[in-house]
């Protein structure tokens, strides 16, 4: 059981608050997506967590201890912060070998993570010959090196090709299924929705939400059912007659809110309306996020001075 525990964390750069009284907890066994626009304070929070930057106030602990107090930290926590961290003139294998030596991790792990991240073939090439996607994989390999129970990745899918994005999605889910604590930052909604079980959302350094993904979407976006028939007008009349809240699309299909697909299907069958399409549409994370930021903007908008 290793939680990441952030409490009242604040970091100021001069007069600007990059992280503002942030409190949240990341639990093991699930992937926690760390969301927010660029500049919301995600990377700063991660650096504070790893003891790289000093907080102005508050604490960030891993398993109840500050990162700097961990003995051989790579065996407890694996992190990817910058894809450019490996020296361009060193080979990937040598880069990982030095890291492994610093935490007395056996060299066998170096070859294992190179294999796991698909870099085994190019491990003896110098890093400057790598594409951004390959550097990203090397950063992930470094994070996995010590077989850690806590994994913190900052924008891991940056620069990955479509195949790589599918790979990282599976990897993150597998790591969580093994009972590890996984925190992954991103500013991409659909991508985060594809792997995260839980969300921590930041906006201007403050916590906007700390909630399971499904709950977050359900609370903010009403599900819709899309129906299409051969006669759009007749379908519209029928929906209105039964008191449904429906809107017509350009292609003649209707979107019905607040009605389960089961109920609509039965109704259309009873009325003998030929159905061409009937699909339940769950809300997306993107819609829910936009709803959240719209509400936030209302509360935080400053009156403009003339």
């Amino acid at each position: 059981m290793t939680d990441i525990d952030v409490r009242d964390l604040t970091k100021e750069y001069g007069a600007r608050r990059a992280v503002d009284e942030l409190t949240f907890r990341v639990r093991p066994g699930r992937v926690t997506g760390f969301l927010g626009p660029n500049g919301a304070g995600k990377s700063t929070t991660m650096r504070l967590l790893l003891g790289l930057d000093r907080p102005t106030s508050g604490t960030a602990t891993i398993g109840g201890r500050a990162y700097a107090e961990l003995h051989e930290p790579l065996r407890r926590v694996g992190a990817l912060l910058d894809a450019g961290a490996a020296h361009g003139s060193r080979t990937a294998r040598d880069h990982l070998r030095a890291l492994a030596a610093s935490n007395r991790i056996p060299v066998g792990r170096v070859d294992a993570v190179l294999e796991q991240t698909g870099l085994a073939e190019v491990a003896r090439r110098r890093v400057k010959t790598y594409s951004l996607g390959m550097r990203q994989r090397l950063g992930i390999a470094a994070a996995l090196l010590g077989d850690p129970e806590v994994i913190v990745l900052d924008e891991p899918s940056n620069g990955l090709d479509p195949e790589g994005i599918i790979w990282i999605r599976t990897l993150l889910k597998d790591l969580a299924a093994e009972g590890r604590t996984v925190l992954v930052s991103s500013h991409l909604m659909n991508e985060t929705a594809s792997f995260a079980d839980h969300l921590v959302i930041l906006g201007r350094g403050r916590l906007l939400a700390d909630t399971p993904v499904q709950e977050f979407i359900r609370a903010r976006v009403q599900p819709e059912v899309r129906v299409r028939s051969i006669d759009p007008d007749a379908l519209g009349d029928l929906l209105v007659r039964h008191g449904h809240d429906a809107t017509r699309h350009e292609d003649g299909a209707w979107s019905v809110r607040n009605a389960p697909a089961e109920e609509l299907g039965r109704l259309l069958a009873e009325e003998g309306v030929p159905v061409l399409e009937l699909a339940a549409r769950e809300g997306t994370l993107e819609q829910a996020y936009l709803d959240l930021t719209a509400t936030e903007a209302e509360f935080t908008a400053q009156p403009q001075e003339a």
Partner: peptide, 18 residues
């Protein structure tokens, strides 16, 4: 100087926080 390029120092200090 190699440590001050491309965030190398962050990785180094993550491995060796003292």
């Amino acid at each position: 100087a190699g440590e001050f390029q491309g965030g190398a120092l962050r990785l180094t200090l993550a491995a060796m926080p003292d």
